[in-house]
Design a binder for these strands. Structure first.
Length: 478
DNA sequence: GCGATCAGCT
DNA sequence: CACAGCTGATCGC
């Protein structure tokens, strides 16, 4: 594979930046448009069922999660969750719950058609126009690194002019979106965990994947590159770049700033000219506790419930990757294995963390600690789930860990959190965040003292950009 | 028929 | 709301 950049191609991707870190030549309108397009969500799926099935054969761990699909010549496909729990049959999911869900969807869809006979045509027309529109969709400026042939987390724009190295900060959908097994636009640089996930989950051609170790300096296209652990999800990295002309950039990807970063040799020893910053919670109202405090609360609460009701099933919700420490700490302190389905188990095992791997169990009845997709943590779902476990448990205690789960009222006193509960099902939303809180963000910026900051989140509206910029100016004033 | 992408939703 | 997706429908090959 030849990734050489042709000599006549421009090396610089972006225009010069103004004092606020925005390109001088791009008008706010244009930029807002392209950014809102980006954020309006065009999503691909991380897994394709048929692919999963074929992968599954080679992974060889849990065939009970596969089901024959007669419509596909008896090919094995991954069961859906209700099927896995034995609630739904393989052909048509006809439980009351699943029927209700499908019917709701159908009704909404029908409602649209009935309400507006021309609605469908309009949709079609819009869709018909879409290709041209889609083609015009271009990579937002903040994903391009000026003075380099690099882009960051920009895979949904096809080949990007002038880009000969595509960086991926971490394996979350909104960052790798657009990456498929057909990727052929250039080398992808990422951490080794992210690299493994690209291979096993997306079947990206290995010849395009370039794994980099943390804290090791590489020279890529004449630029010195170092990845730093981002304290986000497994494999997440900050990208530190030193151009040959002396300019230094730091792209945080998604990260949770911490005091320990303040003593990282690279962050300590280089002045950063431009900081591309994860500004997810860049608002003083976001003041959630540390991960450790939240984990302590989760463990404490689990102990309390188990004491009251020893046959309690503890459930932790999680997306594809992230939040591992929540269930890892429950597992450690209660001395119980972690059950999760084969798909997630394969992903968790790919991290190569022996402590986590050794705690994973493939038998749901043997462990009182289960990890389920966040979307499953609803009262009715958990009730049905409980019923599939044959009286092994008689209550469910579930945790949804997300940064959005916080309220001004509870503040830092986690014990004030009120769960939603019905019957023997209890669900706690806990403010376990893998993004920086407002204060952590402020402290990080005050420590780093960059010349310019480019927000990479909440940057689509002029108001929020202005708001953030004035915060930055304040932080850097003294 | 299949994978990629879309709108709508949480 | 956003997070980081999930689902069914539709499009392109």
């Amino acid at each position: 594979m030849d990734f050489e950049i042709r000599a006549d191609e421009p090396l610089s991707l972006s225009e010069e930046l103004d004092e606020n870190g925005f390109p001088i030549t791009s008008s706010d309108d244009d930029e807002a448009e392209s950014t809102s397009e980006l954020r309006s969500g065009n999503h691909d799926r991380p897994y394709k069922l048929s692919e999963f099935a074929s992968d599954f054969y080679t992974s060889g761990s849990d065939y009970t999660s596969l089901v024959r699909n007669e419509k596909k010549n008896g090919l094995l496909v991954q069961k859906n969750l209700l099927q896995m729990w034995g609630i739904a049959k393989s052909e048509v999911a006809e439980t009351s719950e699943s029927r209700v869900c499908t019917e709701n969807r159908k009704r909404k869809w029908r409602g649209k058609e009935q309400g507006d006979v021309f609605g469908l045509n309009q949709i079609k027309n819009e869709k018909g126009k879409k290709p041209a529109h889609v083609q015009s969709r271009s990579c937002p400026f903040y994903k391009k690194i000026p003075g380099t042939p690099f882009t960051v987390d920009a895979f949904r724009y096809g080949a990007i002019e002038g880009c000969s190295a595509y960086f991926l900060t971490h394996f979350h959908y909104d960052h790798y979106g657009g990456l498929t097994k057909k990727w052929c636009h250039g080398p992808i640089y990422c951490s080794s965990i992210t690299a493994r996930l690209l291979k096993i989950c997306l079947s990206v051609n290995q010849s395009y994947i370039c794994a980099l170790e943390y804290d090791k300096e590489y020279e890529i296209e004449g630029i010195k590159v170092t990845l730093i652990e981002a304290n986000h999800c497994p494999g997440a990295a900050l990208i530190h770049l030193q151009l040959s002309d002396g300019r230094t950039y730091l792209h945080t990807g998604d990260f949770r700033a911490s005091k320990s970063m303040h003593s990282h040799p690279i962050l300590l020893n280089y002045h950063v000219n431009v900081l591309y910053l994860d500004t997810t919670y860049c608002n003083p109202k976001y003041r959630f506790p540390s991960k450790e405090e939240v984990i302590a609360f989760v463990v404490r609460t689990t102990r309390k419930y188990l004491q009251k009701q020893p046959k309690t099933l503890v459930v932790v919700g999680a997306y594809s990757i992230g939040k591992e420490r929540v269930y890892l700490e429950i597992s450690r302190s209660l001395q119980v294995p972690i059950y999760t389905n084969a798909s997630r188990r394969r992903i968790l095992e790919s991290f190569g963390w022996s402590d986590l791997s050794s705690r994973l169990s493939n038998f749901s009845h043997s462990s009182p600690l289960h990890v389920l997709p966040l979307s499953c943590l609803r009262i009715e779902n958990l009730n049905k789930y409980l019923a599939t476990l044959n009286q092994r448990f008689n209550a469910v205690l579930a945790f949804r860990p997300t940064g959005w789960t916080f309220s001004e009222a509870t503040g830092s006193n986690l014990d004030l959190i009120k769960p939603t509960s019905k019957g023997n099902i209890t669900i706690f939303g806990v403010p376990y965040s893998e993004h920086s809180s407002f204060n952590e963000l402020r402290d990080f910026v005050k420590f780093l003292r960059p010349d310019k900051i480019i927000p990479t989140v909440n940057a689509s509206s002029l108001e929020s950009r202005d708001k953030m910029q004035s915060l930055f100016n304040n932080w850097l004033k003294s």
